[in-house]
Write a protein that binds this DNA or RNA. Sequence first.
DNA 1: CTTAATACGAGACACCATGTCCAGTAAAGT
DNA 2: ACTTTACTGGACATGGTGTCTCGTATTAAG
Lengths: 195, 195
Amino acid sequence: MEQTSALGRPRSEPARRAVLDAALRLVRRDGYQAVTIKGIAEEAGVGRQTIYRWWNSKREVLLEAIIDLARPIAQPEPTDDPVHDLRQILRGSFRLSPVAGPIISGLMADATNDPEFLAQLQSELLARRRALIRETLERAQRAGTVGEGAELNLVTDMIWGTMWYRVLSRHAPVNEALADEVTDAVLRLLGSAGK
Amino acid sequence: MEQTSALGRPRSEPARRAVLDAALRLVRRDGYQAVTIKGIAEEAGVGRQTIYRWWNSKREVLLEAIIDLARPIAQPEPTDDPVHDLRQILRGSFRLSPVAGPIISGLMADATNDPEFLAQLQSELLARRRALIRETLERAQRAGTVGEGAELNLVTDMIWGTMWYRVLSRHAPVNEALADEVTDAVLRLLGSAGK
DNA sequence: CTTAATACGAGACACCATGTCCAGTAAAGT
DNA sequence: ACTTTACTGGACATGGTGTCTCGTATTAAG
């Protein structure tokens, strides 16, 4: 859904924001499944055709919305203390999880039967957040906090996986204390696992 | 959706199985989202009302279907080697994941805005599989393979979380080798983290 | 064997979201 | 002014929803 021409009336940024904001409001209020294009259009005060012009489905709307939302919050400035950075990333992610959790789990469910959308979800959201952790772990490795032989790929999956599992299954409260618990446990395990 | 009376025609087990099997076939073919009650009824050769009589929604149908399916496969007989058992549980789960992954992720997404269904999903599926791992880890702890001080709750979440994250995000192939990789890594970490 | 109670398959029904199309209007460049 | 594209609003056929009703089937009780 690209637009290259410089001719004619340009795309309305207010309409774009209204759509994304309305989608976020509705998914919070009614849940992923209950969100409809029609509902978003009405909530945003926007013609339905305007949504169909720029997005193919509600999942594309919500993917763009969550990317916009996650960018500033869950991606803090790197400092010279990788452990601190890791903690901040996880804290930000957990803080975002009440909104992001329902959306991303809905997007993942949607992606299971749509390889194209899975690739898009992969490259635009999941892979970036993966890379964030991985790079921080690499810095920690260079700083000596994490053993040289640690398999960072697997550890990255463990960190995100543990977080996701808790967010999705919710057998325990999800808060910043949990973020610290995960950070500490992973680092303790890694520190003594320099193999 | 209970039925206690012993009067009148009893529930048809063939119809029940036909519904559950049809639901599994359809979710494989078309994905969770695309499955509809109407579709299940037609695929199963069953009246639509028969489904509504026993289940409230397609998610309850699929929950029952996946529970029936997972019971025999992903729950092997315990042996006297807890490490072997752990490996077998994960192998079974990964083997089941092409079918179970789309369904469970759909169920989780559905559950985010429905506390009652979340509780049901929790108690009937997630908690049981959690307990399976936890008990095996406890046996491993008694056998000395896992350090005494290890936080089994967190470790259980790490194991299921890592598995789920890989199944859902699919940035890497999901197979039995991956099950072994996860098992080995967790045990290596735990063995040296008796703290 | 009749009767009461319940389950079954099939279909009708009003409701709502989908995705497309069209009309009229708005905002940009030439 | 004219062209081009975006915007809101509404119409439209299609298909799923959840409820209801029909006639029939299967069980236990009398």
